[in-house]
Each structure stands twice: as structure tokens, then as C-alpha cells.
Design a binder for these strands. Structure first.
Lengths: 108, 108
DNA sequence: AATATTTATCGTAATATTGCAATATAATAA
DNA sequence: TTATTATATTGCAATATTACGATAAATATT
């Protein structure tokens, strides 16, 4: 044991969990915030913004990319990163649906 | 190493990461969905809804509770669980702020 | 009181994550 | 060509997570 039993859950449940899991680390939240703190793509420069070693940042970037939360374009010597809006929209839609249901509840 | 370096990040970054991390497992997403699938608190009955052993479900419930995503009231023999709306609101507010910023971007 | 029911905790094995030094890769600059 | 710069990959140690059997704790039922 030790591995998540994804096969017992729906595709949507696994998809949402994949997104939230990728966001479930302060460094990755910090990366997302940094990517959105300017009006353009960020080319290079991400490693210097974080209090972590370069291989660690690279690993976090890969996880965000695998989850579909960010996109990365090779631009010569550096890589330009930016947020993939679709994934964030998906999360907002999901959570909004949740709270819409909650409004009609009266409990606890 | 192996432990997250929370001390290097802001309180808000850690707070959001704590919520998303707690949601980062399909079983916990399934629990949240189940809790919201009815109009009242769910007293007992959560274990039977999931394809996991009782101690495992109990562990997932504790994680959701520690993160502040659900509330649990002891009701005699059973425990009544429901979603803590405030935590979900916090996430929606956060992600909405993110997309508002993204709208003004033109990149990638 | 004895038993059943519900949930939590303990202990532990399997697996995953986090972090970084060392090294590799690839493009640019000298 | 030989640095230099930017990012990725490898390997590994420390730690965390996932899952569950066994057991405990607490209330309910008989």
C-alpha cells in the first residue's frame, strides 16, 4: 500500500484532485503568484525569485506543468512560463458549483 | 530533507497551500462532494460511501478537518460532518483574484 | 452488565514527496 | 572552440502520505 487508489474514483474527481494536489505546496503557490504578478510571460528568472535550490524549483515547475497549470515555451536560452487559464477556470467552476449548492443548506 | 520549507513563504501562501493540499486526493474530493450532495449534515454513513477501509476514511476526514474544510459534531453514537463554507469561499476568492489579473494579460 | 455499533488511534508496510549536490544538456557569448 | 548561462535530470537522504489490520474508546442497544 501507500499509493493512492485512483481507480476507485471518477475521472473528474481524479482530475480535480490532480490540480489541487499540484497547488498543494507553498512554493508552487508562490510560483503561480509570481507568474501572475506581471502582465507578460516570465522568461527565466523564476529560480531567483524562490528561496529554494535550482533543481528543486525545476521539479516544482515540472509538477505544475504536468498538472496543466502552467505552460512553458522554450525561448532560446531560457524558458518562458505562464499560467494556463483553462485549469484555473476549471477549479473556479468546480468550487463555485459547490458553494451554489451550499447556499441552500441549513446545518451545523 | 524531505520536509516542506514553510518558513520561507508567506502566511497566505502557506494557508492556501494547506487547503489545496488537503483537497489533493480523490478520496477527499469524493468526501467533499458527498457532503454537499444532500441538504443536511451527514451523520455517520461516510465510510460506506467510499471504496476504502474505515481507518483510511477516518484519516482522510481528520485531514479535511485539520485544514478547516469540514466541521464535525459528535451526535451521540455517530459524528455529523459538513463542509465549512468559509474555507471554500477563501479558495474561490483567491482563484478569482488570480483570473481577474489574467484577463488583462496577452501572452503565450 | 453484556453486546453491538461507530469512530479514532496505533503500528507498520508500501509508496510518494521534498530538497539538494552533482552532473548533464542546450543555447548563447566570448 | 571554449566559456558562460539557463534549465533539466540523476541519485539519494529525510520526511510525509496512503492504506489497512488490530485494537481502543465511547455511546447505544439488548
Amino acid at each position: 500500500m501507500g499509493a493512492t487508489k485512483t481507480e476507485h474514483f471518477t475521472g473528474n474527481q481524479n482530475a480535480i484532485a490532480m490540480l489541487t494536489k499540484a497547488l498543494g505546496h507553498p512554493a508552487r503557490i508562490a510560483i503561480m503568484e509570481y507568474l501572475m504578478s506581471v502582465d507578460t510571460c516570465i522568461c527565466g528568472d523564476i529560480v531567483n525569485e524562490l528561496p529554494l535550490a535550482q533543481p528543486t524549483v525545476s521539479q516544482h515547475l515540472r509538477e505544475l506543468k504536468n498538472a496543466g497549470l502552467i505552460k512553458g515555451n522554450i525561448e532560446g536560452n531560457t524558458i518562458c512560463y505562464c499560467v494556463d487559464e483553462k485549469s484555473i477556470e476549471k477549479l473556479i467552476t468546480y468550487f463555485t458549483k459547490i458553494t451554489t449548492k451550499l447556499k441552500s443548506k441549513s446545518c451545523c
